[in-house]
Design a protein around this nucleic acid. Structure first.
Length: 203
DNA sequence: CAGTGGATCGTCT
DNA sequence: GACGATCCACTGG
């Protein structure tokens, strides 16, 4: 188990980072409660030139300011008034590149996850979908801006994803982005039961 | 499995 | 004042 170093997050290659994060362990430790899950689905958001990105066209607001800082922090925002979506920020200061974590396969602290999700037994939906990822890991908008070297962190446990098992598709839920909605910026582990989206985009 | 519709509120125009 | 980088329950096949 090796925590991803601060240097990992300073890349400008958001596509490669989104691919590399597949198979890594996303870990939280809040109030002594340890939970972790393997990242099985990601999406790249390519900053100022990406219509699907909150920072498109260099738009800076209080909400998106974290994206413009040095990479290696959490960017968490509220979606549809209900769901908290967790992103990893990347790149040196001034480059608002992020990777959305869309699904995890629960690994440790399953009882805690079940309690947070108000469920009694584990199933494939526990870490499926970006809203569920934050729910079971206990992440919410107040954590936006937090370092990924503290309560929230990402580990490499030696898992290696065979290249043939990585799936690629367009991103989900970004129809408003015009042509950019078609970009092949979503990455997932083929056949993994925790991956979200339509069946054809899970196999 | 696919399709539909309600929930719910911070953010930006 | 409109609208989401979504989820769930429910319908029908």
């Amino acid at each position: 188990m090796r925590k991803l170093p601060a240097a990992f997050y300073l890349t400008d290659d958001v596509i490669h980072a989104a691919q590399t994060l597949l198979g890594k362990l996303l870990v939280t430790r809040f109030d002594g409660l340890y939970t972790s899950g393997r990242i099985v689905e990601t999406e790249a958001y390519n900053g100022v030139v990406d219509r699907a990105s909150h920072s498109y066209n260099n738009r800076r607001t209080a909400r998106t300011e974290v994206q413009f800082g040095k990479g290696g922090k959490a960017y968490v925002y509220l979606c549809y008034g209900i769901h908290h979506l967790f992103n990893v920020t990347l790149a040196p200061e001034g480059h608002p590149l992020v990777v959305l974590i869309r699904a995890i396969e629960p690994v440790a602290g399953i009882d805690t996850m079940l309690a947070r999700a108000n469920k009694s037994s584990p199933d494939n939906s526990l870490g499926r979908g970006p809203g569920n990822v934050t729910r079971v890991l206990g992440i919410h908008t107040a954590h936006s801006g937090d370092s990924l070297q503290k309560e929230i962190s990402i580990y490499d446990d030696g898992y290696v994803l065979p290249p043939a098992e990585m799936g690629v598709s367009a991103r989900i839920g970004v129809d408003y982005a015009g042509q950019d909605a078609l970009l092949p910026y979503r990455f997932y582990i083929k056949g993994n039961a925790s991956v979200s989206g339509p069946l054809k985009w899970r196999t």
